[in-house]
Design a protein around this nucleic acid. Structure first.
Lengths: 178, 178
DNA sequence: GGCAACATGTAAGTAGTTACATGATTGC
DNA sequence: GCAATCATGTAACTACTTACATGTTGCC
């Protein structure tokens, strides 16, 4: 089993979800397309780690709601205890920054402004998500006993990181203005 | 051409390097194994974007030093101007944090302590690299005219981010201690 | 009338990892 | 004697992306 498989189990232990929803929830720490998620869910189902039920909807397409099994939960708990592999970061923007001295100031400034705008949107979304979580789950969310604790921690981390990114962009734009 | 190819060109426009060295330099914004880098460099050479010379060494294996061509430089400059694809982050540790509520406090604390230790080492390395760059290239490094400007910006960003990671870990450990 | 969101899937291709292969030198 | 660093390469495999395929509702 690969890390994405465990990541999906980790989402399902929090609450039952459709493949579509999982793909979106995953965004905080892993990026995967639905074309990778759907076949993996089928494999997890074959391995007896998850089960699903069809849910009919009106006005929307029907969906499959997946839930984790005890076997899946046990496997996940075991995996969580092991030391994780080092993170993978592949950022095209940073690759462009590396050779920024090749371009003119205007292009450099444009690239950094675009980055800032993208991150400002992410921050707004992140803040709203944190607010929603606090409203829905209360103070309990800051305790390891809550099943939403992990997601909450990751959102707080992401928010801080995104704010840092903007501060860095501002610093660079300052250097470019000199 | 894929992003890794451009990333390699971006490194080579700063200074000529061996494949081995490129693999290490890449670490700031892209992680690639030598088994991916060597064949790509050959492909870049076939496309006339880089050239290489054999350098004989004593006490160490011989190496191939790659340099960028004018064609490669032109292609890179063109690519730099285009809006980058969104970053990819795949972090197994964060996947484990997501389901941290499944494990006991001791395991949770151990995971966070391990993360902190790993990041403290990275910070030490990063600080030394920044110091070296400042010594070698002086104040000029904070100007877009320096070919080391991009690398300097990325190291400063990474350092900040790694310090933030430690602050976040400390915050989580505080919550866990409650 | 077209696009976005909801919802699931497959096929073909590219990108990236793991393992194999070789070999000298330095330090523990 | 063993592991690490330097140095380059290939083969087999896995992971991931892009494109194709289908269909509804609601909004501009």
């Amino acid at each position: 089993m690969n890390a994405l498989g465990y990541a999906l189990l980790g989402m399902l232990v929090r609450k039952p979800c459709s493949g579509y929803e999982l793909t979106q929830l995953l965004e905080v720490f892993w990026q995967a397309k639905h074309s990778q998620v759907y076949p993996l869910l089928m494999k997890l189902e074959q391995d007896g780690l998850v089960t699903f039920v069809y849910v009919k909807q009106t006005g929307k397409p029907d969906k499959k709601i997946y839930s984790i099994t005890d076997k899946g939960k046990a496997l996940l708990a075991e995996w969580t205890r092991k030391s994780p592999a080092p993170p993978v970061i592949r950022d095209e923007f940073l690759a462009k920054v590396y050779s920024i001295w090749l371009t003119d100031k205007d292009t450099a400034q444009r690239l950094f402004h675009e980055r800032m705008t993208a991150y400002e949107e992410k921050i707004a979304f992140r803040k709203e998500e944190i607010k929603k979580m606090k409203e829905e789950y209360g103070d309990e969310i800051e305790s390891i006993t809550s099943r939403h604790f992990g997601r909450y921690l990751l959102f707080c981390r992401k928010l801080k990181q995104e704010e840092e990114e903007i501060a860095w962009c501002r610093w660079v734009l300052g250097l470019l203005a000199k």
